[in-house]
C-alpha cells in the first residue's frame, strides 16, 4: 500500500502528557549501560525516544496509514536537544511528516517530533526516517 502523498507536511495531535519518573530513568539507564547524573534525575541522551516512539506508533496506527511495526525499519535518527530530560518533566510529542518518498518497493517516511514540556519549553526535536517495506501490511 503506497502512502498518500498528501500526508507530507501534516502535523498530528500531540501524544498524551508523559511524566518522567526517576524509576523510568534508572530502568532506561540500566538497559543501555548509561551513567546516571544529578542523583539519577538526568535521563540518558536517547531517552526522548520514549515520547517520540509513542508519537511514531500513533502515526503508524492512523486510519489510512495502518502500517504494522514489524514491517518498519528505522532508517536514521537524530536529536537536537535544548536540554536533557529530567525526572519530573511532563512531556508531549508532536509528530509532523517532513517528507515521503517511494524507492525500490520501500516507503521512506521522514518524520520530526517536537518534544515539549507541558509548560511549553522546548526540550528536544527528534528526527527519524521510517522505512516501510511496501510489500508488507
Amino acid at each position: 500500500m503506497a502512502l498518500d502523498p498528501a500526508l507530507t507536511g501534516r502535523v498530528f495531535a500531540p501524544t498524551a502528557p508523559y511524566t518522567v519518573s526517576r524509576e523510568k530513568i534508572r530502568e532506561f539507564a540500566e538497559a543501555t549501560r548509561s551513567a546516571l547524573f544529578g542523583d539519577g534525575d538526568v535521563a540518558p541522551l536517547t531517552f526522548p525516544i520514549v515520547v517520540a516512539f509513542q508519537a511514531m506508533a500513533e502515526f503508524l496506527a492512523q486510519p489510512g496509514v495502518g502500517i504494522e511495526l514489524r514491517h518498519v525499519v528505522h532508517g536514521d535518527q537524530r536529536f537536537e536537544q535544548s536540554r536533557p530530560v529530567r525526572a519530573g518533566d511532563t512531556l508531549t510529542g508532536t509528530l509532523q511528516i517532513d517528507s515521503l518518498r517511494a524507492a525500490a518497493g520501500m516507503d521512506m517516511i521522514g518524520t520530526r517530533t517536537e518534544i515539549l514540556s507541558v509548560e511549553g519549553e522546548h526540550v528536544c526535536t527528534a528526527y527519524a526516517t521510517l522505512v516501510h517495506r511496501a510489500g508488507g501490511a
Partner: peptide
Amino acid sequence: HGMYTLALVGQALV
C-alpha cells in the same frame, strides 16, 4: 533496536 545502538553512542558521548 537501532535505538539501542544509538543509546550506546549517547553513553560514549557522555
